[in-house]
Design a protein around this nucleic acid. Structure first.
Lengths: 210, 210
DNA sequence: GTTTTTGCACTGACCAGTCAGTGCAAAAGC
DNA sequence: GCTTTTGCACTGACTGGTCAGTGCAAAAAC
């Protein structure tokens, strides 16, 4: 499932090996969890020797943490890009949120394993990589919060809304809907799922206003 | 943290021991994950010998599966109760959803560890308890879907909505918001969080209509 | 000729599951 | 009454296996 991998712009041989290891690790850990996944499995799936894993990463945990940072970097870049593109096109803030939902769905469709693993680890405590996770979570939510804040400032959104909570709710909605989509109705198209979520976002649930 | 435990109506000695094991297991697994949690740890935290765990449960996985079933049973009962109470009071379907959101938040506040563990495992595949999880997930979503379906039938909701997806989105919203609440802003009251979510539900985000 | 990878044997910690035995209360036998 | 037996719940030392991480010499890649 190379569809679950996280690409990078590396060009050296070492970079390529690291990339293969990320790809192998992300699917295995998503399926089985961190502790249940062995380094031997990761090496085998990546098609390298076990020693190579340790030549490239200090430990299993370090490999995992770098994987997390790498993946979240891609996600936030994708969300920010969507928001900025909308701004450049003169779209409203609702349009920006809508574009971000689409970008989020697209990201999850491309990297379902990464998303799965992210969600599974997000609210755990007492783990070595907890601080990494906190930073990374904050980065994702901040992108959404920024759009909401601008929308409130510009009068487009009610100033009664709780920005932090609303951002969390939107992120949660997208995460859960996308994972359910990938897991249980993978035949549906992105457009289809996106359209259904747009309807929700624009409050066209209760009452008929179309 | 007995606040994270799942109570039951047992009275025999054995039932009490099982209860202690659930309480111990749920927090440990929520914090560390299933594989990283040892049976010795569970036994120690429960204040029993390791052998007792195996006297009461066939294996570590079976203990976990029974824990899942037990917890989800409580959650669905709580949601259904909220929906029925609203119906008895002659409330609308939006009111029912609102009551279910409150019930969901209340459940998560009472059993945060259980919720954490549920979310972490929900989209994993290739695990022995995957079928248990599918059943259990379906039970939760079905409660919400039923209310949405009734709402569409009664003309209260647009018949354009995708019931399955909307139910997933609502559940996801509540899960993620509640976990963020518990993890990062535990000082906020249930009423406060619930009010913010109600505003979202009623589409009072974009535009001022108050 | 330097960097990276390979193959593979090895170690030591850790852990799920087992099993022979303990404690105890209530029934059965006398 | 008192002993003996039975069944249940529990105990904790022990075992067999697993796995992260190491060490190193030789090959491959650049």
């Amino acid at each position: 499932m190379e569809s679950s991998s996280i690409p990078s712009g590396g060009s050296t041989r070492r970079e390529a090996t690291r990339q293969k290891l990320y790809e192998a690790a992300v699917t295995l850990i998503a399926e089985q969890g961190f502790s249940a996944t062995t380094v031997d499995e990761i090496a085998e799936r990546a098609g390298v020797a076990k020693g190579t894993v340790y030549y490239n990463f200090a430990s299993k945990s370090v490999l995992f943490e770098e994987l997390l940072r790498h993946g979240v970097g891609l996600l936030t870049a994708s969300l920010r890009e969507a928001a900025e593109q909308t701004a450049r096109d003169g779209g409203s803030k609702v349009d920006a949120l809508d574009a971000m939902i689409r970008a989020g769905l697209g990201f999850i469709a491309r990297y379902p394993a990464f998303t799965q693993l992210y969600v599974a680890e997000l609210w755990r405590t007492n783990r070595t990589w907890q601080s990494t996770l906190m930073v990374v979570r904050q980065q994702v939510n901040a992108v959404v919060e920024d759009v909401l804040r601008d929308g409130v400032a510009g009068g487009e959104f009610s100033d009664e809304i709780d920005i932090r909570l609303t951002a969390a709710a939107l992120v949660g909605m997208v995460l859960v809907v996308a994972l359910d989509w990938q897991s249980f109705q993978p035949e549906r198209s992105l457009d289809d799922v996106h359209a259904a979520m747009s309807r929700l976002l624009q409050g066209r649930v209760s009452g008929h206003r179309g």
